[in-house]
Amino acid sequence: MLRNTIPWLIAACAGSVIIAAYFVPSAQGWQDTIGQWFEVLASFAFVLGGVNLAMQNLQKISAREPGWGYAAVTLMSFLVTLGVGLFKVGVPADSSGSRWGGSYQAEGSAFWWLYEYAYNPTISTIFALLAFYVASAAFRAFRWKNTEATLLLATAFIVLLGRTYAGAVLTSAIPEEYSAFTFPGLTTLIMGVVNTAGQRAIMIGIALGVAATSLKVLLGINRSYLGSGDG
């Protein structure tokens, strides 16, 4: 009952109110309230996550598991970032002369420094890895093996060229009135017509899937996320 039925009832009530609020103007305030409750609960989840992260890594360090040094670095980074943010290390004083009045993210603060010179370049680097993975995937996965793959390959060529200056140069001999047959023109056609048609079909399917799954959650047919073991 406590593990299963009450959480389901909360989910069902909150979902029903949000649906009703879409059609009943006077219920819109309830929707806002539920949204604010979600934010409050999601904030508590940060604490849950922090505790789990600390426990996992402390366990690794104390058991001297392989790679425990990385766990130590993770834990240290976590604590340092948390500390400089909470204690407003290096935050410039505000107009009243108080350091506590300034924002923890203020320019020049330790937190700002970590954001600018540690966090920002690190995550930009990992995102940039995509360029390398795209290249290796192109080499490995794009194969001319059947009709569908050939169509995919041809489309990739046109769009890759059409999205750069090379496409315009290669088809620059085509007169202006036939610009739809240049690489940029064909790219616009592919993106605007073929891609849009495909995207719409997938989106309609996904929207119906979301509606049906939401309904299953509201009706309690799908409770696997509560650990019921069924569906």
Binding site: A42, L48, G227
Partner: peptide, 16 residues
């Protein structure tokens, strides 16, 4: 990547 998902996943795996 989310602590709420971790809790739900723990429940789902425990149930399984």
């Amino acid at each position: 990547t989310r602590s709420l998902v971790m809790t739900a996943a723990q429940e789902a795996v425990w149930g399984a």
